[in-house]
């Protein structure tokens, strides 16, 4: 079942890699002064959060074929990571937005008076504090992601869940599913330990 574990890890890491920054871009668009841009982004985020990820996976995989007659991609990791990244970006962007709104306006004013540019203010002053405040929410989202990777089985991507299910059927035993369960559990244990380390590392200051 090791190849399944590797594939689950691949979904996990690529999704985080793309969705964390993409979420920030979503936040920028969502909070844009341009009403049209922010309205469209608001709608996209509400659809991404309001419909099943499984449906979104199917849409990303088969949409191009239904809409434009384009062959679906062989390597299922690609549509899986695309769907996951966009979906999780929507959730992360809402967390970022809440975090950004929680930073007192005095931080912006302090930086502005010192002559920081808008970008400097955001990346030097605001974002580091946002990261600290949102860390617990991000941890929750990452834990959910670990478990959600099993949805990739919808596209027959042979990650641990699909593999263990098939294996379990073949040998008519429960053990493979149990192994999968333990794998998810240990994975999340590691996530929790790592994230609480990160939180500790940031506890040298209070906001």
């Amino acid at each position: 079942m090791a190849p399944g574990m590797v594939k689950t890890c691949a979904i996990f890491f690529f999704t985080l890699l793309f969705s964390l920054p993409l979420g920030l871009i979503f936040t920028f668009l969502h909070t844009s002064k341009n009403r049209v841009i922010s309205g469209i982004m608001h709608f996209i985020i509400s659809v991404l959060r309001g419909t099943p990820l499984m449906l979104q996976l199917i849409a990303v995989n088969f949409g191009p074929w239904y809409l434009f007659g384009i062959e679906t991609i062989r390597e299922k990791l690609i549509p899986v990571v695309i769907a996951f990244s966009i979906n999780y970006a929507a959730y992360f962007s809402e967390i970022y937005r809440g975090g950004i709104e929680s930073i007192p306006v005095g931080q912006y004013e302090g930086a502005t008076v010192l002559g920081y540019s808008k970008a400097q203010t955001f990346f030097r002053i605001i974002l580091p504090q946002v990261v600290k405040t949102i860390l617990p929410s991000v941890t929750n989202e990452i834990i959910t992601l670990v478990k959600d990777t099993s949805l990739a089985s919808t596209l027959s991507y042979a990650e641990i869940f699909l593999l263990s299910q098939q294996y379990s059927n073949t040998i008519q035993q429960f053990t493979p599913l149990l192994v999968a369960g333990v794998f998810y559990y240990v994975f999340n244990l590691v996530v929790t330990v790592v994230m609480s380390r990160v939180e500790k590392k940031m506890s040298y200051y209070k906001i």
């Binding site: 302090g110 502005t112 008076v113």
Partner: peptide, 19 residues
């Protein structure tokens, strides 16, 4: 920003950068 170099402001509640 050329003018912001000319003045400084001290706030009532400091607005230091906590991080």
């Amino acid at each position: 920003n050329q003018f912001r170099k000319i003045f400084g402001l001290v706030f009532q509640n400091f607005n230091l950068f906590p991080h």
